[in-house]
Design a protein around this nucleic acid. Structure first.
Lengths: 212, 212, 212, 212
DNA sequence: CATGAATGAGAATTCATTCAT
DNA sequence: TATGAATGAATTCTCATTCAT
């Protein structure tokens, strides 16, 4: 939610944004299908029905710019679902459950997005200079979740634990389900979402503390 | 043109394995340094001190075969540490803690292996026909951990939870620390290992139910 | 689709010529800055403040047509200075000095034109079918200078020499100073102009002849 | 078949250099035919009978490296002729004549080299960072000629003139004949060589001053 | 076994030009 | 006229793989 978005929107025409969206969509699907390392402009162009890769270069100055938008698009979609569900929850404990379960909901509703994200997040070299320009940091970041847990602990709703460690664990548990889901599409995602929420509900209970 | 079968066979096998190990080692380091998508045969050959990429093709029929061995090597190294530490633990609860902490120990001791694994695991397309041939399944698999948790529950040491869900969560928490570590090398790995062990020690306690 | 021929013709011609001049000017500056091989329509359009390269294609049927006008423009500018200076000189000898020195004056006053010309003259393939259509001949031509020298010799002001050879030498000396100037901008152009004029004043003296 | 390291080194170098020479030769011919800006790897490869441009990249790390060798090759060939002819001349005046005439001899004997050099010299952007790496300086340089003229003047064989200015003029006269020759192949090169030598023999005479 | 030359496909990107609006 | 989207060929360069020696 950057103010810079507004400028971007002004600068680009409607047609341009439509094309960009189309390309981004094709890129997501391609990554989801063949994997990030195997995703080339020509495959994306083919899927998008473009006549040449030049069309992609026309709309995106460079490869990282395209994938930055891809990641942005995915994160925005995921963030929308999560934020909405969390807002309607009253307590921190309920919000945590909403966070976890809505992430699983996103997996179920946007499998291609999910797959693409997993591919890109770790497929892109983290310290790569030609990379997403800080965006990969946003992807891996658990800052928001960490802060949320800290707030909840300050409010007395959670037990004793290190917020960062817990945040990494929660996020990792969710992401690992993405991967499992990529293998075994038969997983009951909603059920597993509830179970994971149960697990972390359990170990964040007030009174329960890291006893060592 | 083989001259003598007996001796030659052994000698060749030995030499071959030495070369293969050398190449695999160079591949791991290369992947850890420049990332999987940027890893090429020529970079590996260069690091291995080979004069030609043909040498790699000679020892590994195809690119996936090399990376299969790479992943195998890493998993074996990780498994060695984990298995040893678990064996010395008496109870299931202690074994679980040993499993988690020894995984963090592996991260600390073999950072290159760790990075390479993370890169490859998701960098390689899972359903790719030209892929690792089932090996990627081994990488993502939590079967062993799931079985272990089920046994522990049967033995009455753990509480009520779905073994698979818990296994995925544990494994995911660990793996996410790998990723975080790739960003922020200053993490106190041993401490976080203990904390993660604390977290899952807490929510696997007997008496604690997932039914909240 | 022309509506009214008379007025429209004039109006269009004027506007067109203004645009063409603008584009030509931008092309000259671009060539001078980045070199002929690196000069693209988009760079020219950008410098000219045009929103699209289509604008260039609209005004110039093909790339060579644009560069033909570029060269024409430069030669005209150079010719203006040279012709004016020569006209005010009384004798052939003075005119020759005026020719040489005014060429250096042009270098000093229009460095971009100078650079662009050097770039284009030899950058463009002479026998190229997609080329300037005879214009490159004009650039390299020393016909005018040759004729001038012949006239001067007929008038008895010059010594014995082959007019064409001398013309090529004089022109070459001047052009080579352009190149040197592109490397070393610190050259005292006016001084070198005088010195070159001295040199050729010396060897065109009447009485002095090729004695071998 | 390794005999001694030295031999191997030489053998390998020899093979490589043979290919490199072949590619350089094809590059020279291509530049001479279609011009520097129109010279692409694929055209060179085609002329050299290579199956792909990859072969060129295999032998030359980058495009500028190839053209550096091209220029080097040409300059070496020209330098060989010139140096030999100058050595056999006794006086500075005779050496100057030898220099000029041998340059024309080179034009006659290696027309493709000549054309290619003219193309590259000015076709390449002088201040281009991706350029020949200082080699273009060598091409344009008149340092050697300047020094030679200074020595000759110190020895009392030449008259009063600025050595640098004279060097630039001589070199420019020669180079301009290259260009003229590219247009009109019917020029009598040897004759023009003698005439140019006459011209500069005249204006470098001792006693003759630049002070007109 | 090892080398390194060779191959051809494929990568991203830029280009001049066309065309509908 | 002017715009900007679209096209498709061309660019340099990298890649995994093959093969003769």
């Amino acid at each position: 939610m950057k103010a810079k978005d507004g400028d971007d929107q002004d600068a680009r025409t409607f047609t341009q944004q439509a094309r960009r969206a189309q390309i981004v969509q094709a890129a997501i699907e391609t990554v989801a299908e063949v994997g990030y390392p195997n995703t080339s402009f020509s495959k994306i162009a083919q899927r998008a029905g473009l006549s040449s890769t030049g069309m992609i270069s026309y709309h995106f100055a460079r490869k990282p710019e395209l994938f930055a938008e891809v990641v942005n698009t995915i994160l925005r979609a995921a963030g929308d679902i999560t934020a909405t569900r969390m807002r309607t929850a009253a307590t921190y404990r309920a919000k945590l459950r909403a966070y976890i379960e809505s992430n699983f909901e996103f997996i179920a509703r946007h499998p291609a997005y999910t797959q693409a994200l997993v591919e890109i997040v770790t497929g892109i070299r983290f310290r790569d200079t030609t990379s997403l320009g800080g965006l990969e940091k946003a992807v891996v970041s658990v800052d928001g979740l960490t802060d949320f847990l800290s707030e909840g602990r300050a409010a007395g709703e959670f037990g004793r634990f290190d917020s960062f460690t817990m945040a990494v664990s929660i996020r990792g548990a969710i992401d690992n389900f993405l991967r499992q889901h990529m293998f075994d599409g038969d997983l009951d995602i909603a059920r597993h979402g509830r179970e994971v929420a149960d697990i972390f509900d359990l170990c964040t209970r007030p009174g329960a503390g890291a006893s060592n």
